[in-house]
Design a protein around this nucleic acid. Structure first.
Length: 400
DNA sequence: ATTCCACAGGAAACAGTGGTCC
DNA sequence: GGACCACTGTTTCCTGTGGAAT
């Protein structure tokens, strides 16, 4: 009997590979991702055209569901423009920030400043007042006479941060040009959420939304084309079943035309097929891949929760389908077992709705007349999954 | 027609951390 | 070294609510 490790390694080395270029199976592989986006590419280019004439273009809002290629299109257009103007005396600078990744207003501004070239000294990453950070950034633009194009991805998150803190950075950003003697600042906002404008200050909308471009969803046919293109480059010829391709397109297209998901799906399916030493990717592989992606998502989100959230999830598991009050007392017991201080019920309620957002549990508001109203929660994933994932956690080992 | 339950969920305040600035 | 800043995770306090029970 051969060593299982050796067996696997041998197989991987000698076994046939049906994927010949993995790179192409990632969404961010630019040339192939933004197919069918000619109109949108033109529109974005159009609105940035004034740069070539050495004046400031209008601010721009770009909408579209995830996986429609909006960020890639914007990045591509800007880098092309940048190439063009590189040799002219009109220095432009592209700055890209993702408001979802930068969890705070301060962080977003600092990332902005860093990319402008401000050092740690000139712009410390904590300790300053937000208005001070802002002033320093504007000073820099003014002095260097740069023309900045600031791309804010997932700008809807920024809108949320703004409303939380009450500091109206977006408003100040849109008005920055009035305070600049030289140089300029152009904003490009990218958003998944078409309704996010409603949350904004109308003054901001009027200046931010000078131009708007909407990326429509890919339909199943288009996704199929994108997949075909990538498959022909990434896989060995004839190694993906027609039916597998169709299923892939259908699964991803059925949701909201998410090309990213479609490409992920075919990549994982391909890897599964390879692992099984199969020379073709079949429908079964795609289904398995879809399930695997789901499970991975659940597992990583379960693992990433802090201790008290994990305890709450366990409490729900132990008392499946029960009300907040019951979950809370179950949670308190668990706290005693692991020897941690319990948090207040208010905090647990809040946690429950946070966890609900992630989709791991689902809640239903019930009115029980004289027995008051409560929310009943249950797990949407299997309790085996929870047990399996929490087994590795030392503090939780005893109670799972 | 009232009462009253068992919470939901908003608002504000607070403690603690890690920093700058003068 | 003290005033001040942003931010997170939490507590405290609070108002609101649909329908069974009375």
């Amino acid at each position: 009997m051969s060593d299982p490790i050796d067996r696997l390694l041998d197989a991987a080395e000698s076994g046939k590979s049906i994927i010949k270029n993995r790179e192409i199976l990632h969404f961010t592989y630019i040339p192939k991702t933004i197919q069918h986006r000619n109109t949108e590419q033109e529109q974005v280019t159009q609105s940035l055209l004034p740069i070539l004439k050495q004046s400031r273009p209008s601010n721009l809002l770009v909408y579209g569901k995830p996986g429609t290629g909006k960020t890639l299109v914007v990045k591509k257009v800007i880098s092309k423009i940048q190439e063009r103007v590189e040799k002219s005396n009109f220095p432009i600078k592209l700055i890209y920030s993702n408001a979802k990744k930068e969890t705070t207003l301060y962080g977003l501004l600092v990332s902005f400043g860093r990319q402008l070239g401000l050092s740690d000294k000139e712009l410390p990453s904590t300790g300053l007042a937000i208005s001070e950070v802002f002033k320093r950034i504007l000073n820099n633009i003014d002095q260097e006479k740069t023309n900045v194009v600031f791309v804010i991805d997932e700008i809807d998150y920024l809108a949320e941060l703004v409303s939380k803190t009450g500091k109206d950075i977006l408003y100040q950003l849109t008005r920055a040009n009035e305070n600049l003697n030289s140089g300029s600042l152009t904003l490009i906002g990218i958003s998944n959420d078409l309704t996010f404008k409603e949350k904004l200050d109308p003054r901001v909308i009027s200046s931010l939304g000078e131009e708007e471009i909407v990326f429509t969803n890919y339909d199943v046919e288009q996704i199929k084309k994108i997949l075909e293109e990538r498959i022909s480059e990434a896989f060995e010829a004839e190694s993906v079943d027609e039916s597998a391709l169709n299923l892939c397109a259908a699964l991803a297209g059925g949701e909201h035309g998410d090309a990213r998901r479609a490409i992920d799906l075919i990549r994982v399916a391909g890897e599964l097929a390879e692992r099984q030493q199969s020379d073709k990717v079949t429908e079964t592989h795609v289904r398995d891949a879809s399930q695997k992606i789901e499970e991975n998502k659940e597992e990583t989100s379960l693992k990433s929760y802090p201790l008290h959230e994990k305890l709450v999830i366990l409490a729900i598991m132990k008392a499946n389908g029960s009300s907040t009050g019951e979950i809370y007392s179950s949670y308190k017991n668990l706290c005693k077992v692991v020897g941690r201080d319990e948090l207040t019920q208010r905090r647990i309620t809040q946690m429950l709705s946070e966890i609900e957002l992630s989709g791991i549990i689902s809640g239903r508001l019930v009115h029980q007349g004289i027995h008051g109203r409560t929310k009943k929660y249950k797990l949407t994933i299997s309790s085996e999954m929870v047990k399996k994932t929490f087994k590795d956690d030392l503090t939780l080992q005893d109670i799972v």
